[in-house]
């Protein structure tokens, strides 16, 4: 069988078909629904122009949700990457049983977000508080996810626990692909371990950082299942004079707007803005990181 354009097309077809069906068409539909007043069920639809977008930027719920999504992403990106990098250093060092560690750190990533959410809800509400109470540690005897100031941090802790093992693998691959000679030469020249890591290893695996940052940013922005199961948006707090759910991230806000409150068009408008925001952040981040990468 000779390679030809026809065969190229045949092999590409399933992928393109899927992409069109589950990405392209829904995207176009979504954008057009955001310009209507559709509730998601009715067959009657009216065109309302950009009203949904105007309402959205006046909605305290949306503004708050937008803000904490950014904050959550920031906390997450820092925590996940630092923890993952440290784990990667650990499992590539000469420590005993490193293969076991590699597997163990990766396992949480295999658990689904909903299961994880309910498990950690129990940990925060019952387990940690029980320890706190029996040892008489004040700050530990009340649940972190019942405190509006700590709930985002609690979510980040769970997310880090789950996701760091996955990012660790990317760093491990990066570290293993660097040449040992450079490191050995530096050792001979008398560079300390910290110096070697900061001055040599990190620049050499900059491409791993690009990938990891990209993955953690998009992953945190899109957080949904963990959010639903762990906090469902609670506890409530007051923001700009209105009552908002203190841990309701953007994806959950969109879901509640479109599905629970049956204002699908308004939810769609939020999704479009959400999409644009993700595109901008991702491109910006890749652009900046690429500039700093060392051609190894």
């Amino acid at each position: 069988m000779k390679r030809s354009k026809v065969w190229d097309a045949v092999f590409l077809a399933p992928c393109i078909f899927a992409l069109i069906m589950v990405v392209l068409i829904p995207f176009v539909q979504g954008v057009s629904f955001s310009l209507t007043d559709w509730n998601g069920v009715r067959s009657e639809i009216h065109y309302v122009g950009f009203d949904n977008y105007k309402d959205m930027f006046n909605s305290v719920e949306f503004l708050y949700s937008f803000r904490i999504t950014l904050l959550y992403t920031l906390i997450n990106v820092i925590m996940v990457n630092i923890v993952a990098f440290l784990l990667a250093l650990l499992v590539t060092s000469r420590v005993r049983g490193k293969n076991l560690y590699r597997a163990a750190f990766f396992v949480p990533n295999l658990i689904g977000g909903i299961v994880l959410g309910y498990t950690w809800q129990f940990m925060f509400n019952d387990f940690f508080t029980a320890i706190g109470k029996s040892l008489g540690i004040g700050w530990m005897s009340s649940s972190m996810i019942a405190n509006k100031n700590l709930v985002l941090l609690a979510m980040s802790i769970v997310n880090t626990w789950q996701y760091a093992g996955y990012i660790m693998l990317i760093f491990v691959a990066g570290i293993q692909s660097t040449s040992q000679e450079v490191m050995e030469a530096a050792t001979v020249d008398g560079a300390s371990y910290i110096q070697r890591v900061v001055k040599i290893l990190i620049p050499m695996i900059a491409s791993s950082f690009t990938i990891s940052l990209f993955l953690t940013i998009t992953n945190s922005f899109k957080a949904f299942d963990l959010n639903v199961a762990l906090t469902n948006g609670g506890p409530s707090m007051r923001f700009m004079g209105s009552v908002v759910k203190s841990s309701q991230l953007l994806a959950l806000t969109i879901y509640n707007k479109s599905i629970t409150s049956k204002e699908l068009a308004k939810g769609q408008a939020m999704s479009v803005v959400f999409f644009l925001m993700l595109v901008v952040f991702s491109l910006l981040q890749v652009y900046i990181s690429k500039k700093r990468e060392v051609e190894a």
Partner: peptide
């Protein structure tokens, strides 16, 4: 209306 209990009253 749909969602009032869950989205508007519950947080209050």
């Amino acid at each position: 209306p749909p969602g009032t209990g869950q989205d508007i009253l519950a947080p209050i």
